[in-house]
Amino acid sequence: MIEVSNVSKSFGAVKAVQNISFTMNDGEITGLLGPNGAGKTTTLRMLYSLLPPDEGTIRIDGLDPIDNAMDIKRTLGVVPDGRGLYKRLTARENIAYYGELHGMSKALIRERTDELASTLNMEDFIDRRTDGFSQGQQVKVAIARAMVHGPQTVMMDEPSNGLDVMTTRALRHYILDLKAQGHSVVLSTHIMQEVAALCDRIIIISAGRIAADGTPAELCERSGKASIEDAFVALIGSDEGLLA
């Protein structure tokens, strides 16, 4: 359960996020949607405690990301946009490094890694160095790394960037599985089909403000459009960002 109320964040004169409020429920997939530069990444960074908000409060399962940074980090799994794997380590070592930093035992890390390798279908390359991995392989390692400590809340930034159709489908199944297991999933994306196929709730951010917040059906209804894509354009008032 994530509760954000009246949060603002500026970088110098740039107001990245202004007075946003929303809630994300457990067992739901929430889509964070918005054009480039709208404040999605800033919002995520505040949620996962790397950036302190200037104003307002954030609570994740009742905890403040700044005061309880260490506890929040234990309950979060993050797949960042950049992936950020270590090329000279194998996939297994990349995953184990994060497991160790979470204070897990070697045996537990091994067990979890084998489990994730089988779920994400990565047995073929789990013991290879990640240098030269395809985009799909990289995302899988990044997901396994984020999930190794069994976090309650999972945040993914543009997870299907650069993936082929088959990998994207597998990824969507995996995200739906996470939801079925009771995790809350936050998806930051600008791929409309993904949003339509996965999300229970959509929060649209535009120019640092919440432009809309509701289920896909509600958003379509409110904007009087048939598809999410048209609803999105109508709600933010331009088609900027859709080409990115």
Binding site: S49, L50, L76, G82, G84, L101
Partner: peptide, 14 residues
């Protein structure tokens, strides 16, 4: 540069 610093800092280590 490899963009691995941000996820590294998300681990519960001071």
């Amino acid at each position: 540069e490899r963009r691995s610093l941000e996820p590294l800092l998300l681990n519960p280590v001071p």
